[in-house]
Amino acid sequence: MTTEKLYFYPVWLRVWHGFNALGILVLIVTGISMQWSIDSPLINFSLAVKLHNIAGVVVSIGYLLFFAGNLFTVNGKFYRVKPKGLGKRLVRQARYYLCGMFKNEEPPFPLSEKRKFNPLQKYSYILVMYLLMPLVVITGLALLFPELIIEEVYHLSGIFLTAVFHSALGFLISIFLIVHLYVASIGKNPLKNYRSIVTGWHEINH
């Protein structure tokens, strides 16, 4: 058995990921506390609003970094959609997670220099990073400057619609996060991937 070390996560990506992860955690905690108006002495409503605004801006700027990084560096190639046979690949990976891995089967899509993510990973990242995140950022910025929002759409407040949409997106991202954190722990050593996203180096055993 040989161990190959691959440099998966360049510095800019790790910096983005660090800020993003911290920011999103703050956003989720403060978001829930505002939504349910939990006025604990730890974070009162006013503080929650302030923190949520700050973290939102940090994550938005971070998102630009991520977007630019994927546009101008090779990292972008891991995010290219390849529709041919997509369904099949996703099903194979899902089958592996649901039974294959318990029968000690080999992963159907072993990671390599060319393939940083397995299909499920890849498309969930694409979905989150190129659909949910932009939408949550745009609706969030709109709510930061509510004066800009269309006032009324068929008697519904524009802010009301935007806010409901924003919360729903935030919720989906939270669900993503749970799965993301868990799936990252799959492997021989549950902490291995976490070390990688900090150091940048990913170890692959052949």
Binding site: M34, Q35, W36, S37, H155, L156, F160, A163
Partner: peptide, 17 residues
């Protein structure tokens, strides 16, 4: 549905929660 305004924390819909 008739909301003309949105109040963070007050527009909780128990079913959605």
């Amino acid at each position: 549905l008739q909301n003309e305004s949105y109040l963070i924390g007050a527009n909780q819909v128990p079913a959605l929660k």
